[in-house]
Design a protein around this nucleic acid. Structure first.
Lengths: 139, 139
DNA sequence: TATTGTTATACTCTATAACTATA
DNA sequence: TATAGTTATAGAGTATAACAATA
C-alpha cells in the first residue's frame, strides 16, 4: 500500500476543517447579535489583551478607519466596548472592553479554543505525531 | 516529554489552515472579477459536473432563488454560464457552463486542489501518518 | 500642514415580498 | 392553484472621499 499523495492529504485536511468550521460554531454560540461578518468578533478578541486606538485597530484588523468607527459604534451601542479620549493626544480615542464585553470575549474564546470532539479520540502518540507534522509544515 | 494536549494541536491546526486559506489564494488567482463572497465561485464549481436548474442551484448552494437569479445574471454577463429553457417544462431554466466558464473552473480547481508547498516537504511516512490520523478524525 | 477620528456616500453580498409565465 | 424564475426592495458588511478637531 503506497503512501497518499499530498493532494489527497490536502483534500482530507480541507474536509476536516470545513466540517468543524469555527465561524459556524461561533455563530451558534453568540447568536445573531454579532452579525455575520467577522469584524466585530475579531475586534473584541483583539481588545482582549489591551485597549487600542482606532488607528491601531484598523491596522490590526486590516480595515480602514471609517469602518473602524462603524464597528466601534456598533459594539459601543451593545455595551461591549467604550471609547476614552487619550489625554496625551486628544485626537486619539482608545477603545477598551467593558465588563460585559470581557464576558462576551470569554464566551467566544471558549468556542474558538475548544477542539472539536474528534480530536479527543486521538491517542497521545497520535497527538504527538500530528503535532510534529504540523510543526514541520509551519516551519 | 509529554504529548501535546488536544487544545494545543487544535491551535496548530487552525494556524496552518489559516495561513494557507484557500479563499485568499483563489482571490489572488481569479482577481476581483468574481467578487469577495464565495457565491459565484461555488456556483461555477457546482456546474462543473452537470447543468442544473435554478432551483437545484439554490438548493445545492443553500441560497434562495432570487439570489440565484442574481448570481446567474452576473456570471452570464461575464460569459461564464448560459441559460437554456428546459423543453419539457418551459418554466425551468438550466444553467450550464460555457466554454470560457469551463476554463475558469479549471483555473479555480487548480488553486483549490493544489496543496500548499509545505505539504510537499512531508515524507511518504509522514503523509501516511497524517492521512491515517485525519481518517480517524473524520470517522 | 499632517494626523485622528467622523460623516456622507456608495458598492457588494444576501434575504424577503410581490410579480410573471408556465404547468 | 401551484411552481419556476424574475423584479423590486431592503439590510448587513465594507470601501472611498470629504470633513472636523487636534497636533
Amino acid at each position: 500500500m503506497s503512501s497518499p499523495t499530498p493532494e489527497q492529504v490536502w483534500a482530507e485536511l480541507q474536509g476536516f476543517v470545513e466540517a468543524h468550521a469555527v465561524r459556524k460554531r461561533l455563530r451558534e454560540r453568540l447568536g445573531t447579535a454579532m452579525g455575520t461578518g467577522g469584524g466585530k468578533v475579531k475586534l473584541l478578541l483583539l481588545l482582549e489583551s489591551s485597549a487600542l486606538s482606532h488607528g491601531e485597530v484598523a491596522e490590526a484588523l486590516g480595515v480602514d478607519r471609517p469602518y473602524t468607527t462603524v464597528l466601534v459604534n456598533a459594539l459601543e451601542e451593545q455595551g461591549l466596548v467604550e471609547r476614552r479620549t487619550d489625554s496625551d493626544d486628544r485626537r486619539r480615542k482608545l477603545v477598551a472592553l467593558t465588563e460585559q464585553g470581557r464576558r462576551t470575549v470569554s464566551d467566544a474564546r471558549e468556542v474558538i479554543d475548544t477542539p472539536p470532539a474528534a480530536l479527543d479520540r486521538l491517542s497521545p502518540a497520535e497527538l504527538t505525531s500530528l503535532s510534529k507534522i504540523l510543526a514541520k509544515l509551519h516551519g
